[in-house]
């Protein structure tokens, strides 16, 4: 076989064409609250009436479905896969396909799985697509940077010096003229711009949207929403 093309590469830009803004929620260190911030931001954006998508790309440890409390929903098929709508959010996650079982993948398979999902998912028209990124600065991040082309990065960190140091090491590598980057401190001791307070009630609210919306953390995400999405909404 002399010449081989991967046709998935050529159609991904079409699949993303009707999305006005893509927001990658990252932070590069595990346990900083990327998934909570992603899901809470998607809920808050959708409740303002915007067409909102949420994509959980943390393949090996997807949790957005658990935080949202989704049950018995699955993508439908019509010339591609249509993300199911939950609480006004078009939601796509590998957890649908793994039937919530653990997914053990090496880097090359992670890249293939992401390309496959992006190739077949029909998002349609969206104002915002929030993407929950896995921890680390590796395969997923580079593949997403290459395929998405234009996006905003929300870097979540905690007051821990380890979290700050990792973030400050990586930030210069991703800050280019084409990429908007904003830092959000989670588990903060104080409230304010770019700060989300530590909330001991989070665990008890997981899977229950009504309880989530009463959390201090959710309210801080709402008050920082313009900063997260990079525009006044």
């Amino acid at each position: 076989m002399n010449n081989v093309f991967d046709p998935r590469e050529y159609v991904i830009s079409d699949r993303l064409a009707e999305i006005k803004k893509i927001i990658l929620v990252s932070g590069f260190k595990g346990g900083v609250g990327k998934s909570l911030v992603s899901v809470f931001a998607a809920i808050a954006i959708a409740r303002k009436g915007y067409k909102t998508g949420l994509l959980d790309l943390d393949i090996t440890s997807s949790t957005d479905d658990i935080i949202l409390g989704v049950k018995e929903i699955y993508p439908s098929e019509d010339k591609g896969l249509i993300p199911p709508v939950f609480e006004g959010i078009r939601f796509m996650s590998f957890s649908f396909f793994s039937m919530s079982k653990p997914i053990a993948l090496r880097g090359n398979s992670v890249v293939d799985a992401i390309k496959e999902l992006l190739c077949v998912t029909l998002w349609g028209e969206l104002d915002f697509l929030v993407v929950d990124m896995p921890p680390g600065f590796g395969d997923t991040f580079f593949e997403v940077m290459r395929l998405f082309k234009k996006f905003r990065v929300v870097c979540v960190y905690t007051p821990s010096p380890l979290s700050k140091k990792i973030l400050n090491k990586i930030l210069p590598l991703i800050k280019t003229t084409d990429i908007e980057v904003v830092k959000i401190e989670n588990m903060s001791k104080i409230s304010g711009k770019g700060r989300l307070r530590y909330d001991k009630n989070v665990d008890a609210a997981i899977g229950d949207i009504k309880r989530i919306m009463n959390l201090v953390l959710y309210k801080d995400v709402v008050s920082n929403l313009n900063l997260i999405v990079g525009q006044k909404i």
Binding site: N3, F5, P7, R8, E9, Y10, V11, D14, E77, D78, K79, G80, L81, C119, V120, L122
Partner: peptide
């Protein structure tokens, strides 16, 4: 029916790559 999505990717690839024409 995600066969359509895959077929679309093939057709787009062929349309965009001169060496396949």
């Amino acid at each position: 029916m995600h066969e359509w999505a895959l077929a679309e990717s093939v057709v787009k690839t062929v349309g965009l790559n001169k060496e396949l024409k």
